[in-house]
């Protein structure tokens, strides 16, 4: 059973991610967190194969969350899913060894992220 954790303060973004993942893989579990802090709390009992992380969230942002998640769940693939399309953001994601995907969240974008997970 594959679990995916969607971390985004926007309820509609979580809803869209969940909807598109469920369409492709109805047997996968999609867990949600509305902040970096909540993601860390959920990771005490979840071992997701993939973590989709928004960047700009109240409290702990996506990069800070990724840095804390990495040692906790080294096997998980982390993808930053963000509206921030600045080169500096892509470069920082690459430096942290995490994937980068641009919002908006569409079926195609989620397909690409799933392909990234399945390519390992």
């Amino acid at each position: 059973m594959i679990t995916i954790l969607v971390v985004d303060d926007s309820r509609v973004s979580r809803l869209l991610s969940k909807q598109f993942i469920a369409q492709k893989h109805p047997d996968w579990t999609v867990a949600e967190a509305a902040s970096g802090e909540e993601a860390l709390e959920k990771l005490t009992h979840l071992s997701p194969a993939l973590i989709l992380l928004d960047l700009n969230m109240p409290g702990m942002g996506g990069f800070a969350a990724a840095e804390k998640i990495r040692p906790l769940r080294p096997a998980a693939r982390i993808v930053l899913l963000t509206a921030n399309v600045q080169d500096a953001t892509r470069e920082r994601a690459a430096a942290l060894g995490i994937g980068f995907a641009e919002k908006p969240i569409t079926e195609t974008r989620i397909d690409q992220v799933i392909a990234f997970l399945e390519s390992r």
Partner: peptide
């Protein structure tokens, strides 16, 4: 969800504009 969805749309569109500047 209207306000949250509009906020997310604004987030995406405004970041696209400002991303070009950056």
């Amino acid at each position: 969800m209207e306000q949250e969805a509009m906020s997310e749309i604004g987030n995406i569109i405004l970041n696209s504009c400002m991303g070009a500047f950056a």
